[in-house]
C-alpha cells in the first residue's frame, strides 16, 4: 500500500493537547512527507522543524475602493453591506478593511460602477525543507479577524504536491477554521488528553468529524498509569479506534518545550511514534479498501 496522496488532519478541539507534537513527529518520521501548519493564528510547527524557508508569499484579500468621479453618493453600497464596513460622507466613501468580508457585493450593487477592488495583505505563507520534510507554515497578521484565506492558500500548495504523505496540524476549536483545515483531508487523527475537559472537547471534535463523514481514529496523549482516562472511556463507548498512547513523560515534555522534534532526538520516541504511524496508516488504508 502506497502512502502517496494520503492527507491526514490532526485535530483535538482543545488546545495544548498535543496536535503539534503528534503531527510534527509523525511527519518527521518519513522523508518526502509534508507538514502543513493550519493554526495560522498561533503557528508553531516551524519552531520545531526550523526549515530553511523560501520567500514569503503574501496572502491577499480583496477590498473595495471608490472612483470619486463616478460616485454620486447614492448610498446603495452602504445600504447593501451586511457587515457595515462602509460609510459615506458626501461622496467620500470610507472602507473599514478589518470589518470587510471581501464578498464583492458593494461592487456589484453600485449603479454607477464606481467601485472596484484592490488587494490587501492579511498574512503570509512560507515553505521550506527540514531533513526531507516539506514544511508549510501560514501566519495570519495580528489584528485580522479570520485566518481562512491563509489556510486556503496553504491547502492550494498541497494540491500541487499530491505525491506526499501529508499531515495537517489543525487549529484548536471545532468551528470554521478547523472545518476549512479538514475539508479535503482523507483521514482524521484525533488527539485527546486524560481529563474531563479533554473528554468534553473530544466529544465536540468527534461530532464534527462524524458530521463531515470523515474516517478517524484517536491518539491518547499525556497518559497517566492507573487512573481512569475519561477520554479513553469516551472512545470505547463510541467505538473510536485507539491507535496509540503517549505517556505523560517529563523528559518528553522538556524536549517538546525546547521545540525539539523528539523522534530525531531519541530512539525511544522514534519507536513510540513509528508504531503510532504504522497503526494509523494501517487504519487509514484498511478503511479505504473496506469502503471501496
Amino acid at each position: 500500500m502506497r502512502n502517496n496522496d494520503l492527507t491526514i488532519a490532526v485535530l483535538s478541539g482543545k488546545g495544548g493537547t498535543g496536535k503539534t507534537l503528534v503531527s510534527v513527529n509523525l511527519a518527521a518520521l518519513l522523508p518526502d512527507s509534508t507538514y502543513i501548519d493550519c493554526d495560522v493564528e498561533e503557528p508553531d510547527g516551524h519552531l520545531f522543524f526550523k526549515p530553511v524557508f523560501g520567500t514569503s508569499v503574501p496572502v491577499m484579500v480583496k477590498t473595495p475602493q471608490v472612483d470619486e468621479n463616478r460616485c454620486t453618493g447614492c448610498h446603495a453600497c452602504v445600504d447593501f453591506c451586511k457587515f457595515n464596513a462602509l460609510a459615506l460622507i458626501g461622496s467620500t466613501l470610507m472602507v473599514f478593511n478589518e470589518i470587510c468580508h471581501s464578498c464583492g457585493g458593494c461592487v456589484l450593487v453600485c449603479p454607477r460602477k464606481a467601485l472596484s477592488e484592490k488587494e490587501r495583505m492579511v498574512g503570509f505563507v512560507r515553505e521550506g525543507i527540514s531533513r526531507g520534510v516539506q514544511v508549510v507554515t501560514g501566519t495570519m497578521n495580528i489584528g485580522e479577524s479570520s485566518g481562512v484565506p491563509i489556510i486556503e492558500a496553504e491547502l492550494r500548495i498541497k494540491e500541487k504536491n499530491i505525491n506526499n504523505l501529508t499531515f495537517i496540524d489543525c487549529p484548536p476549536g471545532s468551528a470554521c477554521l478547523v472545518r476549512k483545515s479538514i475539508q479535503e483531508a482523507d483521514y482524521c487523527l484525533l488527539v485527546a488528553e486524560p481529563t474531563v475537559f479533554g473528554a468534553h472537547n473530544l466529544a465536540m471534535v468527534y461530532a464534527l468529524v462524524s458530521s463531515l463523514h470523515k474516517r478517524f481514529s484517536l491518539v491518547l496523549n499525556k497518559c497517566l498509569g492507573g487512573e481512569e482516562n475519561p477520554s479513553e472511556v469516551f472512545a470505547i463507548e463510541h467505538q473510536i479506534p485507539i491507535v496509540g498512547r503517549i505517556p505523560f513523560d517529563s523528559e518528553l515534555g522538556l524536549l517538546n518545550s525546547e521545540a525539539k522534534v523528539v523522534v530525531w532526538e531519541s530512539e525511544k520516541y522514534r519507536q513510540l511514534f513509528s508504531s503510532i504511524l504504522t497503526t494509523v496508516l494501517r487504519e487509514a488504508h484498511h478503511e479505504a479498501t473496506g469502503n471501496s
Binding site: C81, F83, N84, L86, A87, F96, I99
Partner: peptide, 8 residues
C-alpha cells in the same frame, strides 16, 4: 447589527 455597529 451583527458587526460594525459604531460605523452604522
Amino acid at each position: 447589527s451583527q458587526g460594525g455597529a459604531g460605523i452604522k
